[in-house]
Design a protein around this nucleic acid. Sequence first.
DNA 1: CTCATAAAGTCATCTGATGACTTTATGAGT
DNA 2: ACTCATAAAGTCATCAGATGACTTTATGAG
Lengths: 225, 225
Amino acid sequence: MRALSKTNLADEAIEAIRGDILGKRWAVGEKLPNEASLSAMLSVSRGTVREAVRVLVSQGYLETRQGSGTYVRSTTDAGRPLTMARRASLRDQFEARLALDVEAARLTAIRKTPKTVAGLRRLLAERGNYDGGDQAAFIERDLAFHKAVIAASGNRAMIEIYDFFSASIADTIAATLGKDIPEPDMQAHADIVDAIETGDPDEADAAVRRFMAPVLAALDRMILS
Amino acid sequence: MRALSKTNLADEAIEAIRGDILGKRWAVGEKLPNEASLSAMLSVSRGTVREAVRVLVSQGYLETRQGSGTYVRSTTDAGRPLTMARRASLRDQFEARLALDVEAARLTAIRKTPKTVAGLRRLLAERGNYDGGDQAAFIERDLAFHKAVIAASGNRAMIEIYDFFSASIADTIAATLGKDIPEPDMQAHADIVDAIETGDPDEADAAVRRFMAPVLAALDRMILS
DNA sequence: CTCATAAAGTCATCTGATGACTTTATGAGT
DNA sequence: ACTCATAAAGTCATCAGATGACTTTATGAG
C-alpha cells in the first residue's frame, strides 16, 4: 500500500552523507572526498552527489569552497530546524496531527477547568457547520477549535508542532479538496468537549478518532485521484 | 565581511524561484514551468535548475512528482524553525513524544511486515535490560528501538518530529535522572512488538502507554519545575 | 460512451566536457 | 638556503546531450 522506502537516489545520498556527518565520520572542518569519489562511493552520478551536497549545504551541515573542496560545518543536528517534515505527504502530516489531537484531548480532559470548557464550547458554536460558503474560512474556524484543544492541554511543545503543521495542512486542504469536504460531524466535535468536561481521557481519545476517521478516508480518496 | 554579490548561479536560481513563490506568482498546488523552461528563463543549465529546485523541495516550498511536474507546496515562509518546542519542558517534550509513540505503534501494527517485526525483535534483544552500566548507552539503545517503531510506521513527518525531540530528550534524561532510572520494563516493550505482530492497534496503543506511564511518573518525581 | 493503448510530457539519472578557482609543486634568481 | 613568481594538479561550478522511468493526455476500436 504505502511504500516505505520509495525515495529517489538524491534523497538516499542526502541521508547517507548526513548519516556519516552525524556519525562523526569526518570532524568539523574536515574535508569530504571529492565529488567523483563520493559519486563512486554512493554509486550515483556526480550530478546526484551535487544535488545532495547542495541540500546539506542549505541545511548547514556542509560548506563548499570552489577549487578547494567540501567541508563539514556541523556534526550535530541540534540547531536543525524542523523543516523537512513539512515536505512529508499530506497523509503523513495528517496522521501526525491526529497523534497530537488525540493526546492533547486526553491531557485536556485531565487538566480541564470550567473556563477552558466554556471557551471550547464557544469556539465550537462559532465554527458551526459548513454551509457551503467560504470553504477556507470554515477550515480556519475548524482549525481554531482544534488548536484551542491543544492549547488547553497546556503542552507548549504540542502547540508549536501543531501550529507548524496546521498552516500547511489548511493550505493544502483548501487547495486540494475542492467541494468534496467531509461531513462537518458536529456531533463528534461536541463529544470531544463533553468528554473533556467529564474528564474522561479515553472517551476524548475515541471522540477525536471518530472525527478524524472520515477525514482521513476522504483524503485517501482525493489523493488517489 | 562576506561579499554580498559573490554567489553562485544555483544560489541565485534558488532566490529567484523562492521570490516568485513568496510573491505568489504561482498558487499553492500550481505547477511550475518544466525544468527546460526554468533553465531558459533563468539562463542557467538544467542541472543548476535541478539543484535549486531540490533545495526548495528540502525547504518545503516545492514538491516534485516524477513524470508530472514540479508543484508549489507553500507560498509562505516555510523555513520557520521550531525553536520554542525544543525549549519546552522535558515533561512537555515527553508527552509529545508519547503522542507519536502511540500513534506510530498503531500505524505500524496495521502496516507491519514480518521483516519489520523481526527487526524490532532484534533491536529489543540488543537493548536488553539496564544492567547498571553505561546509562547513556542504554538510553541510546532504548531510543533506537522506539525510533524503529516510528520508522516502521512509514510516516516521514512523525520520524522527523521524533528525531527532533529524541536527541534533547535523551540528553536531558541521562543528565537528569541520575541512577533513579525506571524499571526497564522489558515486558511492556515485548508487548508492543507482540501487538504489532498480531496487528492489533488498540493493544499496541495500550502497551506503549503501559511502558510510558512509569517513566512519566519518575519524571514528575525528579523534576518539579 | 468506455476503456485499453499509444503518444507526449516531465522528472530522474548518467556521461562527458569545459571553465573557474584554490592548493601544491617547481625552479630560477638571489 | 631562501623567496617568490609561475606552472601544474586538484576540485568545485556549470553546461550540454542522452536515456530511462513515470505520469498525463490523446487516440481509436468496440
